[in-house]
Amino acid sequence: MSTLRVTVEELTVHEHPDADALELAQVGLYRAVVAKGAYRTGEFAVYIPEQAVLPEALIAELGLTGKLAGAAADRVKAIRLRGELSQGIVCRPRALSGVDLAGAHEAGADFAAELGIVKWVPPVPISMSGEVEPAGDLLPWIDVENLKRYPAAFPEGEPVAVTEKVHGTACCLTYHAGDDRVQVTSKGLGAQRLALVEDAGNLYWRAVRGHHLPRVAAELAGELGASRVGIYGEVYGDGVQDLGYGTDGRRDVPGYAAFDLAVEVGGAVRWLDPQELDRVLAGRLPVVPTLFSGPYGARRVMALAEGRETLSGRAVHLREGVVVRPLTGRYSPELGGRAIAKVVSGAYLTRKGGTEYE
């Protein structure tokens, strides 16, 4: 899940192809449906992204009472309006009426706290929860930002790998070579520096033991001279999320596909480049499918985010989206960290009955 920021953005306004009273306000590569004439290209407005939870007063002010997602009808979710995908809310809240919007945009100000907006945290099923313990020496997973919000993250033509984004739950393993110690956590718990105490009934530990991750991590530590190894993979299947890939996640060994790997060597942590990850995990662990490897093109990536999944080999349902990273890892000034971003498919965002457990 991306970082929640409520920012001021410069708009590009497009005609709605199928509604005379509506237009499309573009922020980055996102588009949000707005009333015709409410905004003009070059103007500034506040952008509230998906997965934001709004306070009741702001919902009423924006005329959205009863129209948002969730049991309390307070969560921003992608929808289709007259056939066009609308992601997020473009607005000018009264609470910010005295703010210099152009200046706030230039400064990159975040108004989430001022507007009482918080990030939605999905509920955690019993199979994914359990007893936890402090784990300050984890190698945690990171938040991956959406490419639509940061369209300049990759220059056209940069060599990249585009992998399929699998709809499961992120399982994060840290292996400590010094004392042969294994820590297992979820993305959400890992961010809190908490690890799950081993439990044979826990989904993450079933995946870790069933796919022999500790053995693989120990082998990699020896081969790469690493003091710590982090293996990050998606645990999936029916009973895990609403997209099961033809696998039953309730069985003893749920589906698993690795998507990233980090190693600490000489006190420095590095993420393996895509081709190195595929090479060192070949024959050891299932890996998420690579859909494309070559020069980056925004249109190509957006197209790859749509369609049917390839993980099962049978295209049993829609694709969640894609993840993009350079073939040679680097820092991204646009993202403020590692160069890696995701694109989520419109069909996935607007499906009915979806689950989003972390």
Rank of each mutant, 00 (worst) to 15 (best):
L11H: 05
P134I: 02
T355E: 05
Y232L: 09
R5E: 10
A170K: 06
Y30P: 06
L196G: 07
V343T: 05
E106W: 13
A341H: 09
Y47G: 09
R284A: 09
V301Y: 01
C171S: 11
Y256F: 13
P122V: 07
P93K: 06
S345R: 00
T185W: 10
Y39T: 05
V240A: 04
R75V: 00
R94S: 12
F111C: 12
A73P: 14
G244N: 07
A107K: 14
D179S: 13
L81A: 00
E145L: 06
A78Y: 01
V343H: 02
G233M: 08
V34W: 05
D100V: 07
A72G: 02
F154G: 08
V253F: 15
V229C: 10
S332W: 09
L327E: 08
P123L: 04
Y296F: 00
G246Y: 00
L224V: 07
L138G: 08
Y204L: 15
Q241Y: 04
A25R: 01
A262Q: 13
V343L: 08
K165G: 12
L349T: 12
E9C: 09
L29T: 02
R215M: 11
A21Y: 14
V34C: 04
V53M: 11
D248I: 03
A57R: 06
R250V: 12
G103V: 12
G190R: 14
T3N: 07
A104I: 08
Y150T: 10
E164C: 02
E84I: 01
Y39E: 03
D278A: 09
A305L: 01
C172R: 14
A113T: 15
D143C: 08
E276Y: 10
L224Y: 12
